[in-house]
Design a protein around this nucleic acid. Sequence first.
DNA 1: CGTTATCAGGAAATCGTTACCATACTAGTG
DNA 2: CACTAGTATGGTAACGATTTCCTGATAACG
Lengths: 334, 334
Amino acid sequence: MPTVHDVAKRADVAPITVSRVINNSGYVSQATRKRVEAAVKELGYIPNTLARGLRSKRTNTLALVVTDITNPYFTLMARGVEDVAGDSGYTVIYSNTDESEAKEEKYANILAQRQVDGVLLVPAGGNEKTIKFLVSNGISVVVLDRRVPGVYIDFVRSDSEEGAYHLTNLLIRLGHKRIAFITGPNGVSTSADRLAGYRRALTGAGFKNEIVYYGLYNQQSGNELTKQAMAQSPKPTAIFGANNFIMIGIIKALRDLNIYVPENVSVVGFDDLPESMLVKPFLTVARQPAYEMGRLATELLLKRISGELEEYQELILPTEIVERESSGPVKDSD
Amino acid sequence: MPTVHDVAKRADVAPITVSRVINNSGYVSQATRKRVEAAVKELGYIPNTLARGLRSKRTNTLALVVTDITNPYFTLMARGVEDVAGDSGYTVIYSNTDESEAKEEKYANILAQRQVDGVLLVPAGGNEKTIKFLVSNGISVVVLDRRVPGVYIDFVRSDSEEGAYHLTNLLIRLGHKRIAFITGPNGVSTSADRLAGYRRALTGAGFKNEIVYYGLYNQQSGNELTKQAMAQSPKPTAIFGANNFIMIGIIKALRDLNIYVPENVSVVGFDDLPESMLVKPFLTVARQPAYEMGRLATELLLKRISGELEEYQELILPTEIVERESSGPVKDSD
DNA sequence: CGTTATCAGGAAATCGTTACCATACTAGTG
DNA sequence: CACTAGTATGGTAACGATTTCCTGATAACG
């Protein structure tokens, strides 16, 4: 494998000049540049990023740590990250924590070893340990999607409370009085914030009967909790799923129970699903701007890395209520 | 940031001894090991993989290059890769080529710069250039999912021809005579192999009327080509989609046209879809063992990297025909 | 015409780790 | 007792690039 040295010899210059050519830094005359470029091509020279990073202390690598990359919400976010990072010459490493803090710590360690320049983190649980660890190792961090109390750092997320409030109000306006709320883990901020929005709407309407089920942010949990909810008497007339996978679980459970949506039960929830998932009926949701969040967070991170920023930022993007077929007026009953 | 040197000083040993402790190599007495480990912990020492890789020529990094990581087939494959790689202490970098050879070359270059130890490649197009480039840069390669003629290297894929043959035969047994075949790009081996299987079944049944549409391996293409196919007269009574995204496009197109599945038209195809995609009716498919393919390919790659293997391997896994609701007996007509 | 700014290029040191080679001690062997 | 094998540790250099500090031109300017 050829090195700068080989290229330098061939172009009859010093290694540092080769470096200047490939990095477009410093002064190099047109003639010299041509010669070096020719030598690079002839030898098939490929710069070694390890050596480069070791010396320069920059790896041009970011990491995106999410809880579940198979969730279209995070996939879309990843696209946003990738697009911005790619345009700036950064490579992105992806990691899944599956909501486990142990895995999160393990990955943080690996990322530190790899000397990544920055990390976009969707924290599993409300633990600040990982964040502090990364920062103490000189790695910039932007926290995505979730709050972590007591940590002074950059945040980018959407307004869960507000979105849940509007979505619940939509159900209330349709006449629903028994609205079940099926959510994720108790300790996760999105869970808490969405619950808070749901509560605010209920309180605003003078309702006192909140129906809350905690579980996991996945399909199976949504499925099981729906069956529990529908076994109660009186049954809820509407169900709010705190994320997209929970909603899918809800829909499947209702299908199994032969309950029609929205004729018998309305279903709403957080996060949109891609069209390619041919969910029928198409869901009424609070859509989070995932792609945009990924973009913004990455832009913020890059600025943070380059030291352009002083104060830490907290960007909270609005959600968009998309009303579709899965929500409808309540049916007599009561 | 502390280095081996700092740890060494603290534990009163030479740097190399620290290296031996953290890498579990060479001889170190219990007492020394304890001291070093203590020093590591006290200083919060984290090894620098850049320096390590530079010196040792091994980065413990693999790359998985696929055409579209949002496709559940590749996502599942990625899990298989991740699981095996993780168990062996390797990190995996993911790249998407979107079926573009230009992107593939670009990524190959980045991966070479990063000195990855091995690449799992789903080649975009039948180009051998990328493979040769990687190999010539000392990077081991295992080719996944597709054939690349004229290259001597490790391959892992499933038996597309056989799967398509069985799937087509299933339709023939159900009485279908006009079976449309909607596939991906002409140059891609999976496209060719599945077409070959379809043809073999048709020929075996004495049919001469093959109906073939080439397009892309995505939903939109499947959608458009289905509309074309259904505009012909006489209409096909069954449609074979060459991958999962094409199948989704087919289902959507038929929905738009108010054609019922399987009452009016049967639909079958390659690749399964996760349950979470609530496709109705649930599809009859030739399921490729994606997870297993990822696992096997990674095991093969690791062996190749460690030099345990001599001859190049070609692993061809069988597909599994899963008969579900989307296929049924042909309806009178004719 | 001397001084300063801009342009071109180089030498040597260095980033943090491990490979390679060497040394030294203990224990067992014939 | 000399010799080998196994155990334990260290010194030095090197991996391949860039940073830092220099040396000269050449051009521009008052």
